[in-house]
Amino acid sequence: MSWDQPDRDALFSLVLGLKIGENHQRDLMDWLEEITLRDQSKIQVLLTGKVIKDIESDPRLGRADKLKRIKQQVRRLRFPRLVHVEDLIRARIQELKLQPEIKVTVPAGLEGGSLRVEFAASNHDQLKKQIAKLTEAAEKDSIAKIFALLAGKITENP
């Protein structure tokens, strides 16, 4: 795809400012091209929008954190429904109040349709407590909602 000069300039400025490596650049370029193809928008407009500019100029963030947040933001625009389902699942996981002892995660891109549960115990009592906590959580509506979302029952729109 050929880029207009203002689009190239906007990306160049971002890449230069954050010293973005080749792989991250490729991700960003692909996502930006696909967003603009889908939405008939302009890359320059996306990259100079308030959200990206605020991240770029946030003095509390280092270079790596800025890049991470900008990529998250562009990913959010590129995959709005995927990110929406991920957000819904994350909210349901938080409702379970299991963390940090018990870690509940879903696979990247939600592929596989399964929930991963991790915990560690250093003695028998701790193990019993965590299993009890997990058993209690398994009965909650939030867990059923997570599995429903993983199985394609997406009821809320982004």
């Binding site: 889908r38 429904r81 891109g109 596989g112």
Partner: peptide, 20 residues
């Protein structure tokens, strides 16, 4: 090119699982 596809374990891009 603009669908919400993710890379699956077999190396192919597909619409993310709940969507498909």
């Amino acid at each position: 090119l603009t669908g919400e596809q993710v890379l699956c374990p077999d190396g192919k891009l597909r619409y993310f699982q709940p969507l498909r």
